[in-house]
């Protein structure tokens, strides 16, 4: 009676993975067609490197460490958090253009739209982090541990960028348009990055701010990455950072998927 039924397939994990890869490819194609998106994602951290290395750096005292070595893990964190805002903007644009409305009428896995977006942003982060490493070495950054620890530090940073993409995915799905998404994401991003150990030791902050700064994910991740590239005890820092990352992905991933099912 119903010819369409013959074609019906259940949504299995395999389909979810395949749909996610399709959306990832679409988003990566979009990135290559709009190289300015990648350029903007790199210009800001490069400026920050130059500013903190040569303008503020001389005035910032970090006990027992060259400031440039202290700085670079913070710059990487700043780059991936700022970059994650484009997840919000991209999703808001897809909502506004009606593309998500169409996706929702397709037999594809609902989570694939979000997974495909965050995957593509992860690929972009790989590029941005690689570039920021080059810039770091050019301005005098030197890894103080071994190559394995350095690689682990970069992987940890990428994982953190991925988790932040899920945070901003929720922003993108709640915003009526791309401009609002960006405006709403900015203060969150700025507070997370600046009220943290990314650029200065938290000990120099007033007590109330220090409490916040010491207990938020950017500090946790930056401290773990610093331990990995500068040496010293690492285990407890890395465990804390990984716990933050996993927790953020679980909580905001769930929120984003629930929100996606409801958006119109």
């Amino acid at each position: 009676m119903v010819p369409a039924r013959a074609r019906v397939r259940r949504l299995t994990l395999g389909w979810t993975v395949r749909d996610s890869l399709t959306v990832t490819k679409r988003n990566l194609l979009t990135l290559t067609r709009n190289p300015e998106l990648v350029v903007f994602a790199t210009i800001q951290p490069v400026l920050f490197v130059l500013m903190f290395r040569y303008v503020f750096g001389g005035a910032i005292q970090v006990p027992g460490e060259d400031y440039v070595n202290f700085l670079m893990p913070g710059i990487w964190a700043q780059a991936v958090v700022f970059g994650a805002v484009s997840t919000a903007v991209g999703l808001a644009e897809d909502l506004q253009s009606g593309l998500i409305e169409r996706f929702r009428s397709l037999p594809m896995a609902p989570s694939a739209v979000l997974v495909g977006r965050t995957n593509a942003d992860l690929v972009r982060d790989v590029f941005v982090i690689a570039l920021m490493c080059v810039v770091g070495f050019l301005v005098g950054f030197r890894n103080q541990t071994d190559a394995l620890a350095f690689l682990a530090a970069l992987l940890l940073m990428l994982a953190f960028g991925y988790s932040m993409a899920w945070v901003f995915a929720v922003f993108g799905l709640r915003a009526p348009n791309a401009e609002t998404a960006q405006a709403a994401a900015f203060p969150v991003m700025a507070v997370l990055v600046f009220a943290s150990s990314a650029f200065v030791p938290t000990e120099t902050m007033p007590g109330w701010l220090q409490v916040f700064a010491d207990h938020q994910p950017v500090t946790a991740v930056v401290d773990a990455v610093r331990a990995l590239v500068l040496g010293g005890p690492t285990a407890s820092y890395v465990v804390t950072a990984v716990a933050w990352i996993v927790g953020i992905v679980v909580v905001f991933g769930t929120l984003a998927v629930v929100r996606y099912r409801r958006v119109t």
Binding site: V2, L99, R102, L106, P107
Partner: peptide, 14 residues
């Protein structure tokens, strides 16, 4: 969803 097609007023293409 397997059996329907939708084209909207916003020309939702990338």
């Amino acid at each position: 969803r397997e059996s329907i097609g939708l084209a909207g007023q916003y020309a939702a293409v990338d």
